[in-house]
């Protein structure tokens, strides 16, 4: 555990909580892509199946349980409790174009050809692109609520901080995981455009709106 890893995890946790609170307090999931949230629920489920097979630490187990629980709670709020506020017409990204190629890639490129390992690899690949339906939705409507941009910023920062964590671990522990690193780089690159808008607009007090 190093400072980048810890702040990365906390940033991830903050993102998840911000989104849950935003939906809960406003009683609305307007502007939120339900498809991205379903993908994140799939990501956590596929990755944390090792909860059943191995124990690493209390920290590790509790974070995994919290992430999974919050992911399903978010999906429940969007598709059940506040379904009437869900903007399905603008959430039109075709997720099969992500899930199918990512599934194929996980079968082809993995560390070990075993069910749990392939599911872990699948979750790593899927996470790297799971935000695309959300970014697509924002580009389609041309705007995002400020609280939604804080969510996206924390979520993007989490993997960016993990990149620093992997550099750290490579130098001090000789540890690296090529699958996680490449996917983490892809994931971070997808946020670059958003990071630019966040810094130049949202942090200066303006609402995030895109030119038509």
């Amino acid at each position: 555990m190093n400072i980048f890893r810890l702040t990365g995890d906390l940033s991830h946790l903050a993102a998840i909580i911000i989104l849950l609170l935003k939906i809960w307090k406003s009683r609305s999931c307007a502007g939120i892509s339900g498809k991205s949230q379903i993908l994140f629920a799939i990501v956590f489920t596929a990755r944390y199946l090792d909860l059943l097979t191995s124990f690493i630490s209390v920290y590790n187990t509790s974070m995994k349980v919290i992430y999974i629980g919050c992911a399903y709670a978010t999906v429940y709020l969007i598709y059940a409790k506040f379904r009437a506020t869900y903007d399905g017409n603008h959430d039109s990204f075709r997720v099969e174009f992500l899930v199918v190629p990512v599934g194929g890639l996980a079968v082809l490129i993995n560390h070990t050809f075993s069910p749990l390992e392939i599911l872990w690899t699948f979750s790593i690949y899927l996470e790297s692109v799971a935000i695309l339906p959300q970014l697509f939705m924002i580009s389609k409507t041309g705007e995002a609520e400020t609280i939604t941009t804080h969510y996206l910023f924390c979520l993007g920062m989490y993997r960016t901080l993990y990149l620093f964590n992997w550099v750290w671990r490579f130098y001090f522990e000789g540890f690296f995981d090529m699958i996680a690193i490449v996917a983490g780089l892809v994931q971070t690159v997808l946020y670059c455009d958003f990071f630019y808008l966040y810094v130049t607009k949202v942090l200066k007090g303006k609402k995030l709106s895109l030119p038509a």
């Binding site: 191995s54 590790n60 560390h111 490579f170 000789g174 540890f175 995981d177 090529m178 699958i179 996680a180």
Partner: peptide, 10 residues
């Protein structure tokens, strides 16, 4: 260098 899945990570 050890290469392996970072299962201690989240």
């Amino acid at each position: 260098c050890p290469i392996g899945a970072g299962k201690d990570e989240l």
